[in-house]
């Protein structure tokens, strides 16, 4: 199953160890991960459940482009990194 790793900078606000969850696209995987740690949601997604302006998500080393629907496909073996963008700091 895909593995999701959360930014180190997030940890002091909401402890979030890596998780392994099921899903076929970034949205599915992220939603599954947020079920495990609900308080993370507002730190990663905005009020409309879009990726926050200054956050980024990488799937196997490639930054996603669809920040609204989070529709990029995720493979069974994928590694997903949820990171703060350097913008907006």
């Amino acid at each position: 199953m895909p593995r999701v790793v959360f930014a180190a900078a997030l940890q002091r606000h909401v402890p979030a160890p890596p998780v392994t969850v099921d899903g076929a696209c970034v949205r599915d995987v992220l939603e599954a991960a947020l079920v495990l740690t609900p308080r993370l949601r507002g730190y990663i997604l905005d009020d409309q459940s879009h990726l926050r302006k200054h956050m980024s998500v990488y799937v196997d080393g490639v930054a996603i482009r669809d920040r609204t629907e989070l529709s990029e496909a995720v493979a069974h073996s994928s590694e997903i990194y949820v990171l703060q963008a350097l913008s907006g700091g």
Partner: peptide
């Protein structure tokens, strides 16, 4: 108002 993580 976190730059990356939004308003809390």
């Amino acid at each position: 108002e976190h730059g990356h993580f939004g308003v809390k």
